[in-house]
Design a protein around this nucleic acid. Structure first.
Ligand code: MN
Ligand code: MN
Ligand code: ZN
Ligand code: ZN
Lengths: 142, 142
DNA sequence: TTCTGTGCTAGACTTTGTCTAAACGCAATT
DNA sequence: AATTGCGTTTAGACAAAGTCTAGCACAGAA
């Protein structure tokens, strides 16, 4: 993670703007975390974020990483993905899509929404709204 | 849980038969656990199974409950459902269906497969098979 | 300056689940 | 009857993910 590699992500200013757009006060730590998340679209769990953000020097505590990921999810900056019963993944790709989960390897792949034909959904019960529909295609080695 | 209530589930013999059909040696503990599971179609986590099976007298250890639920899932007797990041649910209803998850209350409801029109799915990658497709409709109070 | 609110932190704690090593049950062999 | 073998069960130690608490930092308002 040095300055040799091309950075396809957002620069610090763009990250700050993005947080503001979602009604999040852009603190130092939140910007650090968001910078890691939006470096590229990825599926990442809290542990990995903690490691990445503190790779060079210790910048952010565990509690803050967990709190911030929760906050980002609530504010619609990232999306939670449940495929592994032992940990929660955060998806920094907010373009609507589904997932293919390789249960052998734990690998998680995006599936374009056009690849899955989702027809009529059931109505949400009275007084409720559909928050989202998650489709996970689980695959394994033959 | 006395003998007053009508038992819609399977009797001990039927449970033993069911285990055998799935290639599972029907030990005392496994039959106890299966009896709880198939008393009625339900979504239940390991903790709850442990509590239910040991309600009257201590019959089965924690390790055995976890091992057995894992075994049952592997053998296709029950189905794992991932909706709550903190625990794994087991579904004793193996008829294909989807789920509606009430994120406020943690309630989990079945959705008939006809209610969700799942069209063409993507091919599994070379050398892989689709194990299953999970559809979870997350709803919450307005 | 003092007060107030928000955010950050270390580290204790909780919960879910796994692992280990010993014991058990039961059948086949001697 | 005693021995062996093997699959199963068990208590309890352990691991990992995540939450909580209590104190501190800091900025803006009064
Ligand atoms: Mn539980
Ligand atoms: Mn977890
Ligand atoms: Zn994704
Ligand atoms: Zn179900």
């Amino acid at each position: 993670m040095k300055q040799e590699q091309r950075n396809t992500g957002l620069d610090r200013e763009a990250v700050v703007r993005k947080l503001r757009e979602h009604g999040i006060t852009p603190t130092q730590q939140r910007v650090d975390i968001a910078t890691v998340l939006f470096e590229r679209p990825q599926h990442v769990c809290a542990d990995q974020v903690l490691a990445q953000v503190n790779a060079v020097e210790s910048l952010v505590s565990k509690a803050t990483v967990y709190n911030t990921l929760g906050l980002f999810a609530k504010k619609g900056l990232v999306r939670e993905v449940l495929v592994d019963p032992t940990r929660l993944f955060y998806d920094s790709n907010m373009i609507p899509h589904h997932h293919m989960y390789h249960s052998d390897s734990g690998m998680l792949e995006d599936v374009a929404p056009g690849q899955v034909q989702l027809g009529a959904l059931p109505e949400a019960p009275e007084g409720m709204v559909i928050e989202g529909v998650d489709v996970v295609i689980r695959v394994r080695r033959i």
